[in-house]
Write a protein that binds this DNA or RNA. Structure first.
Length: 391
DNA sequence: AACTCGGGGTC
DNA sequence: GACCCAGAGTT
């Protein structure tokens, strides 16, 4: 039996109390003045810098972004320089961050800004939200931080913070929860220092109001927090339903032609669009013999060549979104080009034969890069691996 | 409302 | 392993 607790306050009635809101703002801004981290994108209010950082930070942790941000701004210091760059260059700098659509949309948006806003990042919210890759959160973040516009934000940190601060025990991801929390983000905004306020709520969520074991003891808002009062910080916000992982097996093939290997560019609509990859496809593992046969057939179809000496080389595991992938990497030798009738290869895409050292210049997926790195290891180490096969 | 999209950090 | 991350876009 749960012991009796005082009833939680109604979130809306808290929000409608001006004195409560005023205290939240004051305590928050005072705390932030002394606790703000010195992050690279906080060195200026250059809208372009803020924009790049916000896109990189989508579903990506601060610590991960920092080195990428520095390299990116170094390479593309202005919107114009990004706009004239090749997409491949942009993706190469993004490699390892994931969600590569972000990089392509950032690049496209830069071109749009050059074309329609003379290379100046727009300050009109309608224009900003129309840019590819910029949704309600990112628009609000850029506009408030760079221009001090009075726009709300709602993201992982503030969803958690507001859920607790309002003792909202519903699902913050539901339509109702989102409506309430966006309303909170809006009504809590101060009249000035909007950018500081928005960064402060994220900072507090990130450093103090953490998912597990929040530091309520040092929280500047603890006296205003009904969740802390009820000791419910481990139950609020409600946990997300856990993901159903799916185990799948894939094969990739390193096709050798002399000292070069074959790669294709992933096309629009498939995973890793715009990145280069070795031929890769799902495979079963129930029957090893049939497996090798199918792998060869599919690799031949993709590369439009006849292959020989297919041998299993190495295995790796990796997770992509909800998939747990067991990747078996083969090597094979190019024998001759195969003439496949026009139209029988709907997945045909741009492709190249390139040396292993040239792989450094192409954007690859994480496993693609892992394969490339193993290929450039000393041959001794490779022979050691391949000799592990049955003799 | 429920997917998809990646990769790494963290306990 | 399971959970989480300064979300956007599509179905």
């Amino acid at each position: 039996m749960p012991r009796n607790r005082p009833p939680l306050p109604d979130p809306v009635s808290l929000l409608e109390s001006p004195p409560w809101r005023k205290k939240v703002r004051q305590k928050l801004l005072r705390w932030y003045a002394g606790a703000a981290r010195d992050l690279p994108w906080r060195k200026s209010r250059n809208p372009y810098h803020i924009w790049v950082s916000e896109v990189m930070l989508q579903q990506t942790q601060v610590a991960t972004v920092i080195p990428y941000f520095a390299r990116f701004i170094d390479q593309f210091p202005t919107i114009d320089s990004l706009a004239v760059a090749d997409e491949e260059q942009v993706l190469r700098l993004w490699e390892g961050l994931g969600y590569y659509r972000r990089a392509r949309q950032l690049h496209r948006a830069a071109r749009e800004i050059v074309a329609t806003h003379q290379g100046q990042f727009p300050s009109n919210p309608t224009h900003v939200e129309r840019l590819p890759g910029i949704g309600r959160y990112t628009a609000g973040a850029i506009l408030s931080i760079a221009f001090d516009a009075r726009r709300p934000i709602l993201e992982a940190n503030t969803i958690r913070l507001f859920s607790r601060l309002l003792a909202y025990d519903g699902d913050p991801r539901s339509a109702h929860g989102q409506e309430l929390l966006w309303r909170a983000a809006e009504i809590l905004l101060p009249r000035r220092e909007i950018g500081q306020f928005n960064q402060a709520i994220m900072e507090l969520g990130s450093l103090v109001c953490t998912p597990r074991q929040p530091a309520c003891g040092t929280c500047p808002l603890r006296s205003l927090c009904p969740t802390f009062a009820a000791n419910l910080q481990d139950e609020i916000p409600k946990a997300a339903r856990r993901v159903q992982y799916e185990e799948i097996h894939e094969a990739a093939v390193v096709i050798w032609r002399g000292r070069k290997v074959w790669l294709r560019r992933c096309v629009e609509g498939e995973r890793w669009a715009g990145l280069w990859d070795f031929p890769r496809f799902p495979c079963q593992t129930s029957d090893k013999e049939a497996d090798a046969y199918l792998v060869q057939e599919k690799a031949e179809r993709q590369s439009q060549s006849r292959l020989g000496n297919l041998r299993q080389w190495t295995q790796m595991k990796h997770g992509v979104t909800r998939f747990r992938i067991q990747l078996t990497v083969f090597q094979a030798d190019f024998l001759q080009e195969s003439s496949i009738a026009e139209g029988t290869n709907p997945t045909a895409s741009e492709s190249r034969w390139i040396t292993v050292s040239q792989l450094n210049e192409l954007p690859l997926s994480a496993t693609g890069r892992k394969i490339a790195q193993q290929l450039s290891k000393p041959p001794v180490a490779q022979r050691k691996n391949t000799s592990a096969r049955k003799s």
